[in-house]
Design a protein around this nucleic acid. Structure first.
Lengths: 186, 186
DNA sequence: CGAGGATGCCTTAGCGCTGAGATACATTGG
DNA sequence: CCAATGTATCTCAGCGCTAAGGCATCCTCG
């Protein structure tokens, strides 16, 4: 376990802030690079490597709850975006596209699937005949009303291990990073 | 901007810790749910929503640097995993699979592509004839040696807006979440 | 030893997404 | 009013991944 002897300055800071963290995959990765390329400061990997792994694990956990309701993440995303937009629960594909951060082609296909299942309707807009009004059907409402509380409970469960200070710090650091990357300017 | 009047308890905590954060996409999402479903505590979305958006934005940024070196994220991932494993720069598909958190089929295909480009070799193991030894070729070494410093510099650039305390808090919170989700136990 | 199960990797159908491009409609400026 | 440009959506080929299953090899234990 020679990799345990290598620690970055960030790691040491962390140890001071929160006692006894367990070595995880990224500690090993950083230690390996320390041995192989000691000339490089790979400490940013502590952030981005964990971001990637966390995203994958969370994604899998959330999908399980979606599947229990006959949904997947893309479908849930569209239904939830329509629901939280409030009355009249109607958005354009462009609005959905910006919210989901996917291309227009992806939204077209998501809506094809949801429309085929009778969960949303797609009508031509009267104001702008290029555009479409996407709206929840009663079935769509019923489904998202069932799935949402389960999803929220699932998210609470996943966060149960963090205290308020950790959550707040996590949120603020991610907020800062998002702003750096141009979020909110659009 | 009625959504600005709605704030979660987490949000207020955060405001105390770091002055004047700008409202971002997730603030709006949480405010919308507050109006539509005031019975639900959707504060976990502050974490998971930002995690998702951050992952997407970071992924796009990192891919740009990979592309400058004729790579994409999956290829870079395999080459970097082999490189950081140190001499003799050789791993099995199973090892690569666990590191990348993808299925065996995904690794097979990644290796097909890299082998076709002459960046890795795949030979039968002598110890276990079911297994394979995947090894960097000289061309693979040359490519990852060029791409890695650029990638690390890129990651430093993306983190430039965070101070040390924010980085440390972010890392420790993600480490705690990863451990909750079963990382490190494997 | 030899059967049954475990393991390591590969194959393949199907899925959701991207990127490039097409179409239809809207807006702007002369 | 019209031409030029911009905008909203859809189309489609191609990509990487998953899930399920197959094959060869290894291991365990009666």
């Amino acid at each position: 376990m020679t990799w345990l002897t290598v620690t970055s300055s960030l790691r040491k800071l962390a140890v001071i802030a929160y006692p006894e963290p367990v070595a995880d995959h990224l500690d090993r990765v950083v230690a390996q690079w320390g041995a192989e390329r000691p000339d490089l400061d790979v400490s940013p990997m502590e952030v981005f490597g964990r971001l990637k792994r966390l995203f994958r694990l969370v994604d899998a956990e959330l999908n399980r709850t979606f599947a229990e309701h006959g949904l997947d993440a893309p479908s849930f995303d569209v239904l939830a975006t329509l629901k939280r937009s409030g009355p009249p629960y109607r958005l354009t594909p462009t609005g959905l596209m910006e919210s989901a951060m996917v291309t227009s082609g992806a939204i077209t296909q998501r809506l094809d699937r949801l429309e085929a299942r009778g969960l949303v309707t797609r009508t031509r807009s009267d104001q702008d005949r290029r555009s479409r009004d996407v709206e929840l059907t009663p079935e769509g409402h019923a489904l998202i009303d069932r799935a949402l509380p389960a999803h929220v409970a699932n998210e609470h469960r996943l966060l149960a291990g963090l205290d308020e200070a950790q959550k707040a710090a996590l949120i603020e650091a991610m907020r800062a990073l998002l702003e750096d990357l141009g979020e909110g300017s659009g």
